[in-house]
Design a protein around this nucleic acid. Structure first.
Length: 433
RNA sequence: GGAGGAGUGGUCGAGUGGUUUAAGGCACCGGUCUUGAAAACCGGCGUGGGCGCAAGCCCACCGUGAGUUCGAAUCUCACCUCCUCCGCCA
């Protein structure tokens, strides 16, 4: 959500900011509506003041035993115009809000210009892919050869873009999540949260999913939305609050399923479990003071990278260009993990600084101790990391071409009950599942 | 699902149609006093918006939304949330 006051004072800068998002100038239409609405408000308030004064007088006259009939007629005469202006004020306010809330966030200057993902900028690479290209295999082949990854059964019971895993792979998924949570809570200072997975309209609006991106979400018959990421409930924890600035940064993490309709992704990544309607993710959210969000963004990205370092997975970190940066973000780092089966890096985490964009929508504010004025908080979110894709990365990077098995990364061994390596199940065992 | 009760500012809490401009307490901030602190005393202290160069003036907001009325925190209706009891239930 944008601040109409900022647009009033900086119409050119605002139009330039939207131009970086490949959008036409918005300020003149917005300001025309804004001006008209304020004229309506001014007139309405004048009439309301008149009504209040006369009504009070009626009370006084009646108390004194006089006749107030004339005054009562006068107030009554104001009513039509008042109703008309109230209605106008309301509809104009609504359309102004709808317009404002449909515009993407203003990018930071250091977000590079570019039209799509091909123009993102690589910042660093960590780790070296070790598997020979000729030995690399796709996670789907590896998982199915293990006998623990079953797309057919998932399709039967649910449909496309679902997977069913069992035995060692099911446990590996749980181990990954457990390891990530323990690292973020134990080493990175995040507070673990178990949030609701269904949220209401207001919450989905707060983080920017509504009103524009409803089609990307699943909706229950009651009208709730299934969360596409834990960012939604975690960030909205501070909605409608005034937080003591001394209590920031607030750092939350959660392990949750994520549900996405993938409405615009028909035909994309249809093979394997790279793009599913449902996947697990460990999410990081920070609420900070405005002056702290830039440093927090670096820190959060570092926390996500640390997970991959500990898993000894090769990755690279990129900064998204203007054309690829999401609606609510001012700047986004993507972390891409090396997938030997695809012979390329693929996104496993996305860390965004949203500035005050979401806070404005949620009405989440900060106040310094002893001070009167409030400021909107800054919000950040990042995957720490996507569990499903981490599992893919482990399968493909730890694959042993000698026997078709998959070694268990050292940091996950404590979570795997002594298992050092996943080996293909016998046919009988895998069918039994 | 059934029957009751309740939602007021940062917090507690008064307020059942017109000097309410939402009392009062606590918390918080400033001051007096004190070697310092505490206590006591004095003062300040909700949010959003409009108009104005400014001082300031005005409007809206008492869970949300409609309604009644010249006038609504207060009356009516619907909804939401919480609490108590009953039923069902992992």
């Amino acid at each position: 959500m944008h601040d109409i006051k900022f647009i009033r004072e900086n119409p050119k800068a605002f139009d330039q900011a939207m131009a970086r998002r490949n959008m036409a100038g918005q300020s003149s239409a917005l300001l025309a509506l804004d001006e008209e609405r304020r004229a309506v408000q001014t007139e309405l308030q004048k009439i309301q003041a008149e009504r209040n004064a006369k009504s009070q007088k009626i009370g006084e006259v009646k108390k004194a035993g006089g006749d107030a009939a004339g005054l009562m007629d006068e107030v009554m005469a104001l009513k039509n115009r008042m109703t008309e202006l109230e209605e106008k004020d309301r509809t104009m306010g609504e359309s102004l809000n709808l317009h404002l809330s449909s515009l993407p966030n203003i990018l930071f200057d250091e977000t590079p210009d570019g039209k799509d993902e091909s123009q993102n900028v690589e910042l660093r690479r960590v780790g070296t892919p070790i598997l020979k290209k000729s030995d690399a295999k796709d996670h789907t082949d590896i998982g199915e050869a293990l006998g623990m990854m079953d797309f057919e059964t998932a399709a039967k019971i649910s449909g496309s873009r679902f997977v069913l895993m069992h035995s060692g792979l099911a446990r590996l998924e749980r181990a990954l999540a457990q390891f990530m949570l323990d690292t973020h809570t134990g080493e990175h200072g995040y507070t673990e949260v178990s949030p609701p997975l269904l949220v209401n309209d207001k919450t989905a609006y707060g983080t920017g999913q509504l009103p524009k991106f409803a089609e990307d979400l699943f909706r229950t018959t009651r009208g709730d939305w299934l969360i596409p990421t834990a960012e939604v409930p975690l960030t909205n924890m501070v909605a409608d609050m005034i937080i003591d600035q001394e209590d920031t940064p607030r750092r939350y993490c959660a392990f949750t399923p994520c549900f996405r309709s993938e409405a615009g992704a028909a035909g994309k990544d249809t093979r394997g479990m790279l793009r599913q309607h449902q996947f697990y993710k460990v999410e990081l959210v920070s609420i900070t003071a405005p002056e702290d969000s830039i440093a927090e963004h670096e820190r959060m990205t570092g926390c996500a990278e640390n997970i991959l370092k500990k898993l000894e997975l090769p990755f690279r970190t990129i900064v998204l260009c203007s054309g690829d940066t999401g609606f609510g973000a001012r700047k986004t780092y993507d972390i891409e993990v090396w997938l030997p089966g695809q012979d390329r890096y693929r996104e496993i985490s996305s860390c965004s600084n949203c500035g005050d964009f979401q806070a404005r929508r949620m009405n989440a504010r900060l106040r310094k101790k002893g001070e009167k004025e409030t400021r909107f908080a800054h919000t950040l979110n990042g995957s720490g990391v996507a569990v499903g894709r981490a599992l893919i990365a482990v399968l493909e990077n730890y694959y042993d071409p000698a026997d078709g098995g998959v070694r268990i990364p050292a940091v996950l061994k404590p979570y795997m009950g002594g298992v050092e390596k996943l080996m293909p199940l016998s046919l009988a065992t895998s069918r039994a599942a």
